[in-house]
């Protein structure tokens, strides 16, 4: 790990201090970190992929109920959150950029902006969840769906189960991301990164963009594609 608490290293020594003995040089270490992070993201793709597969199978089987469930979504809130996440991806990429340049102040600023946008996303999501709760759209004993159309309301409960599973897992990833960003902010303030050593910023960046990627598919699937169809 990094230097002991309170121990300040000059910039020139940060890289040397963080080079693990089993790597030939920092470049090899960084390439390994990047590959390892992507391998983790590959497992994440398959994890979310399972839920996407379930969503598609049920959408085809319970099409009318799926349309009815999907039309309860507020496209405006979903679109705002999409914009918020895209902006947070820009500030994240800027944080990585400034970390590579060794600019600690701008790295901190970009990390704070990313964190603020992340919490904005979660705030909007909380408003949406509250709306679903109030309208008895949360599957369970309180679930109640006024249906007009050729489908069983339990099928709509299935839609909402998958909706909460997918957006919920996505939100959990956002919360973990917020924790990682906070950790980066502290490490950055303590001067643990330099122009030569900044892999943690880059790896958290990859993770944050992956979370954005998941939302890029969740938004059209849950909010958009059934907007104009008849249930």
């Amino acid at each position: 790990m990094g230097p002991r608490r309170g121990l300040k290293l000059p910039d020139s020594e940060i890289a040397v201090h963080n080079l693990k003995h089993h790597f030939a040089d920092l470049e090899q270490q960084k390439a390994t970190s990047t590959f390892g992070m992507w391998l983790f993201l590959v497992t994440e793709i398959m994890f979310f992929g399972g839920m996407f597969a379930a969503y598609l199978v049920y959408r085809l089987s319970y099409y009318n109920a799926w349309v009815a469930g999907s039309q309860t979504m507020e496209i405006k809130l979903g679109a705002i959150n999409t914009v918020v996440l895209i902006c947070s991806s820009l500030t994240m990429v800027m944080a990585v950029h400034f970390a590579k340049l060794g600019n600690r102040k701008l790295t901190a600023l970009c990390l704070i902006l990313t964190l603020a946008l992340g919490f904005s996303f979660l705030g909007v999501k909380a408003v949406e969840y509250h709306g679903h709760w109030v309208h008895h759209e949360v599957p369970g004993p309180n679930f109640h769906f006024e249906h007009e159309g050729n489908y069983d309301p339990r099928q709509v409960a299935m839609f909402f189960s998958l909706y909460f599973a997918m957006t919920g897992m996505h939100a959990v990833h956002m919360i973990i991301g917020a924790g990682l960003l906070t950790w980066l902010l502290i490490a950055n303030a303590r001067g643990r990164f330099s122009t030569e050593y900044n892999s943690p910023v880059e790896m958290v960046g990859l993770y944050w963009h992956f979370v954005d990627l998941v939302w890029i598919y969740l938004f059209p699937l849950l909010y958009l594609i059934s907007h104009h169809h008849n249930g």
């Binding site: 991806s89 990429v93 963009h209 990627l213 890029i216 938004f219 059209p220 594609i225």
Partner: peptide, 22 residues
């Protein structure tokens, strides 16, 4: 085509994020 258009746009967005941001 609502689904096809939406998922095609999402895929272009995903590619942009992966190629440039990641």
């Amino acid at each position: 085509f609502n689904a096809i258009v939406a998922l095609s746009i999402a895929t272009v967005k995903a590619l942009l994020v992966m190629l440039f941001f990641m």
